[in-house]
């Protein structure tokens, strides 16, 4: 009976979504904000990747809120999992294949992550993607050798530093430009690495913060006491 009602609800939801989306003017709608950004975004922010100009320029406040949500999630995870007892059993050492390939992959992932962060304003990619890749790079060795530790304090310091850098750049913009997180500095030539004013700096801060936060999250989950 309960399952029947649930299925009925899902059917109604799917029907509603189908009707609503198929009636909407699709693929040629007005999109006022998007059109304005597409026309002026390149001149106003100097970035070739317009998604970056939206994420950091037009909706920088949004990104700050997103970073704080991620921070809250990491904090809540730490509070819920609690401290690990020192005598709790650890995972076994991984096999030769995983250890060798993690040694091999670590520098490659590091380079790819840094490249993606630094070129966020020119090509697809940016702080979020690169940060995730950096977090994976730093977690792989822990996966291969569970006895190895990443220091929580170091990760938290890195994360705090990156978050402070983001806010300080925003406040500097407030002092010089008038608005919080307004892009500053020289726009540079479109398409070169040193362009876009402060946006690449902001994206570096985002990348370091996301990377440190997700790495800390993974390490905490991996440190959780195994099922007794």
């Amino acid at each position: 009976m309960r399952n029947l009602i649930s299925l009925l609800f899902v059917g109604g939801l799917v029907f509603l979504l189908l009707v609503l989306t198929l009636q909407a003017p699709f693929a040629e709608g007005p999109m006022l904000v998007g059109k304005g950004i597409l026309q002026q975004g390149t001149e106003e922010t100097g970035t070739a990747n317009l998604v970056t100009s939206v994420v950091l320029g037009y909706r920088g406040y949004d990104t700050l809120g997103e970073l704080s949500i991620l921070f809250t999630a990491a904090l809540a995870l730490g509070v819920v999992l609690g401290r690990r007892r020192p005598e709790a059993p650890r995972d076994l050492e991984a096999g030769l294949v995983l250890r060798a390939s993690s040694d091999l992959l670590f520098p490659l992932l590091l380079v790819v992550g840094l490249y993606i962060i630094l070129h966020g304003h020119l090509t697809p990619g940016g702080g979020f993607q690169g940060g995730v890749i950096l977090a994976a790079a730093f977690f792989l060795p822990v996966l291969a050798r569970p006895s190895q530790r990443i220091s929580h304090a170091g990760l938290m310091a890195l994360e705090a530093l990156a978050g402070a850098a983001f806010i300080i750049i925003g406040l500097l913009a407030m002092r010089h430009g008038g608005q919080f997180l307004q892009p500053l500095l020289d726009k540079g030539q479109l398409g070169s690495l040193l362009s876009g004013g402060t946006l690449p700096l902001l994206y570096i801060a985002v990348g370091v913060k996301v990377g440190a936060e997700l790495a800390g999250l993974l390490v905490r989950l991996g440190d959780a006491e195994a099922d007794s």
């Binding site: 990747n49 998604v51 970056t52 993606i116 697809p124 990619g125 940016g126 979020f128 993607q129 995730v132 890749i133 977090a135 994976a136 977690f139 997700l214 999250l217 993974l218 989950l221």
Partner: peptide, 19 residues
């Protein structure tokens, strides 16, 4: 949407599966 595709591939197929 190459940006979103990159994020989804890195997060959804990689990190989320790891978690």
């Amino acid at each position: 949407a190459p940006d979103v595709a990159m994020t989804e591939a890195a997060v959804g197929a990689g990190l989320s599966a790891m978690v």
